[in-house]
Design a binder for these strands. Structure first.
Lengths: 345, 345
DNA sequence: CTGAAAGCGCTAACAC
DNA sequence: GTGTTAGCGCTTTCAG
C-alpha cells in the first residue's frame, strides 16, 4: 500500500490519524516526521510507513503556531519582469537552499503604498527575516520593519540610511563614474534616456550622479527623454531615432538600463553610425541576456546575484546568532564594451 | 501618538495587547480588525486607534489555524528567469488582486523531484488552490494534488490528462502547425535548434509535432542541435553560426524559443542573408521583448498572460462554489513576422 | 452589539 | 525511548 492507493481524503489528515494508524503516540509521530529527538528504528519505520500510506502532509500552520518558528524569508521587490530581480532571487535561493529557510516573494510595482501593504501581509505570517529592495519606504513601512523584531536586509542601494542590514551598490556613484568616463573619453554632446523615475529611486540616483559629474566637467545634458511602459527594446529604438532626429549633433547617449540601450544600439548599428568613434552609448545593469548582440554595450554591472547571495547570508548569520547590522557596498567596475572610447580621440 | 512613535516591540503584539490598550474584549477587537459582524462606531474607532498606536500586525498563522482558511494560492512553475513565467504570473496576479487571494510562487527548475518537494512544502501551508505548470508530475505529486481537496489548475499544456482543471495550448499542435506552414512556403532543407529537453515536456511536444508534420510532407530534419544553459541570445548566435557552417544548404531554421531564435536572427541579418527569400526562421512564444529587433521573428504565441488569467479565474470560480473540472485549450495563430514566406516562391 | 468558552493541529517541556 | 500536559493566538459558536 502506498500514498497513491489512498482514497482521496475529504478532511485533511492530522497527526492523530497517523498516530492511530501506526499505534504510536502523536508526540512520537511528530518526532519522527521532524527528525527530532531519539526514536527507535522500529518505531520510526512504523510511523514513516503509516504516514506514507495515508499520504499525510503536515500542517505547517499549526506547527508554526506551536513552535513559534516560521522558516520563511519575505523578499519584497518592485517587479519580476525586468532582467534584474530574477537574478537577485537566484542569488537568494542559492544560499537559502542550503538551509531550512525558504524565500517568499512579494511584488510592489514600484508603488510605496503597495509596498506597505505587501510588507504588512508578509509580516503577518511572522517570517524569520525580510529582504526588501531599496532604502526608501513609507514611514509606516519603516516602523513595521523596525518593530518586526526580525533581521531586515535592504538591498540594491546603499545611498541612504538602512534600517538594519544592507547590501548594494551606490547608484549615484555608478552614474557619476559613467559621466566621468564619458567626459574623459572626450564626448561632449551628451543625451540621456530613461524611465520616468519619480518612484524608481535607484534610476533617479544614477541620473543625479551622472548629471553632477557632467556639471563638474562643465557639461550640460544636450537632450533627455523619459519614457514609461512598453517593451524596452522597442522603446529604445523609437526614442533613440526620435532623439537623434531632434538633436543630430549628439555624440553620446546614456541609457538608464541595458535594455533600452540595446534597442538604441540596434538602431544605431543599422544606421551604420560610427560607434564608438564618433558616437558612444552606455547602459546600466550588465545584463547577461545581451551577450549575443552584434556589439556589446558599455555598462556598469549592478551585481544582482552577488547582492542576493549576500543578503541571504546576512539573514542566515543573524539566525545563527549574529547581532551586528552589517552594511556592504559593492563596487562594480565600468565595462566599456564596444560602444565607448576610453580616451579622447 | 501613532505607530511610528511606538517603542520597538520585543515580543510581537497580540490581540490581547490591543484589547487591553483599548478596553475592548479580544473578540470585538478581532471583529473590528476583520470588518466582520456589527460593531458600534465608537468601539470601532477606539480599537482602530489602539491598533494603530501600538503598531499591531495580526498573526495570520493563528488566524488561519483557528478559521481553517488560508488565502494563498500556490503557483508552481519551473523557472522565473526566462520570458515566459513572469508573464503568466502577471496574468494570475491581475485576477487575484481583485480578490482576497494571494499567489505564492514555488520554483522547480524543471526537476520532477524538486517539483514534488516544493508541492509538498506548499501544501503543508494549506493553500486555497494550486496552479502548477505542466501535466507531467511524479506519481507522488499527482497523488498529493488529487488528495489535497483543493482546486488544482494545470497550466501551459493541454496534451495529456489533467488532474482537475487545466488551461493551455497544445504544444504538439503548435509544432505541427509551424512544420506545415514551413512546408507550405516551400522550404525543404530544415534545421531545428532547441534546449536539451528531457525534462521540458512542452519543448519536446513541440519538437515531436514539428518532426511529425515534416514527415507527413516527406521531409526529414536536415540538421539539429540541442543546447543547455547560457545566455539564449548568445547561444542562438553561436549555434546558428556553427550549424550553417556544418550544413550550408539549410533553407529554414526552427528554434524552440524566441530568444535563441533572436540570437540566430541577429547573426543572419549581419551576414546579410536573404530572409525570408532564400532562408527562413521561426521561434516560439511570441515574446514582447523582441519587438524592437530590426526584423521580427516568425513565432507562435504561447498565450502566457491569458493562461495565467484563466487559471486564476478557475480557482476563483471554484472557491465561489463551482464544481466542474474545466479544461480550456487556447489556439494561438502563427505569426509569420518578417522571417518566413507564406507560400512557395 | 458584545463577551466567554472552546478548540484549531501541532510542539515545548516535562514526566516516566 | 516514549507519553502526557499545556498552550501557541486567533476565530467559532453560542450567550447575553
Amino acid at each position: 500500500m502506498n500514498d497513491v492507493s489512498a482514497p482521496p481524503a475529504r478532511r485533511p489528515l492530522t497527526l492523530r490519524d497517523v498516530s492511530e494508524a501506526s499505534g504510536v503516540s502523536e508526540m512520537t509521530v511528530s518526532r519522527v516526521l521532524r527528525n527530532r529527538g531519539d526514536v527507535s528504528d522500529a518505531t520510526r519505520a512504523k510511523v514513516q510507513e503509516a504516514a506514507r500510506a495515508l499520504g499525510y502532509v503536515p500542517n505547517k500552520i499549526a506547527g508554526a503556531l506551536a513552535s513559534n518558528r516560521v522558516n520563511l524569508v519575505a523578499v519584497i521587490i518592485p517587479s519580476m519582469s525586468n532582467m534584474v530581480f530574477p537574478e537577485v532571487m537566484g542569488g537568494i535561493s542559492s544560499v537559502l537552499e542550503e538551509t531550512e529557510l525558504q524565500p517568499v516573494v512579494g511584488i510592489t510595482d514600484y508603488l510605496p503604498e503597495k509596498e506597505e501593504k505587501v510588507l504588512y501581509e508578509m509580516l503577518s505570517w511572522r517570517p524569520s527575516g525580510v529582504i526588501i529592495a531599496g532604502l526608501e519606504h513609507t514611514e509606516a513601512a519603516r516602523a513595521m520593519l523596525r518593530n518586526s523584531g526580525i533581521p531586515v536586509v535592504e538591498i540594491m542601494d546603499t545611498d541612504g540610511n538602512p534600517t538594519d542590514c544592507a547590501v548594494g551598490i551606490s547608484h549615484r556613484r555608478a552614474g557619476r563614474e559613467m559621466g566621468e568616463a564619458i567626459l574623459e573619453a572626450g564626448y561632449r554632446r551628451i543625451g540621456f534616456m530613461g524611465t520616468k523615475m519619480a518612484l524608481d529611486h535607484r534610476a533617479r540616483k544614477r541620473y543625479e550622479g551622472f548629471v553632477e559629474a557632467l556639471a563638474k566637467g562643465g557639461v550640460e545634458l544636450a537632450d533627455w527623454e523619459f519614457y514609461e511602459g512598453g517593451s524596452a527594446l522597442a522603446k529604445g529604438r523609437e526614442l533613440t531615432a526620435a532623439m537623434l532626429e531632434r538633436t543630430p549633433d549628439l555624440d553620446f547617449l546614456y541609457y538608464s538600463n541595458d535594455l533600452i540601450g540595446a534597442g538604441g544600439l540596434l538602431y544605431c548599428t543599422e544606421k551604420g553610425m560610427d560607434i564608438p568613434g564618433s558616437f558612444g552609448m552606455a547602459g546600466f545593469n550588465g545584463v547577461e541576456l545581451l551577450r549575443g548582440l552584434p556589439v556589446t554595450l558599455a555598462t556598469i554591472d549592478s551585481c544582482r546575484r552577488e547582492i542576493g547571495r549576500t543578503a541571504a547570508d546576512m539573514i542566515v548569520a543573524r539566525m545563527e546568532g549574529a547581532t551586528s547590522s552589517e552594511v556592504v557596498t559593492l563596487t562594480p567596475k565600468l565595462q566599456p564594451g564596444d560602444t565607448m572610447r576610453l580616451s579622447a580621440p
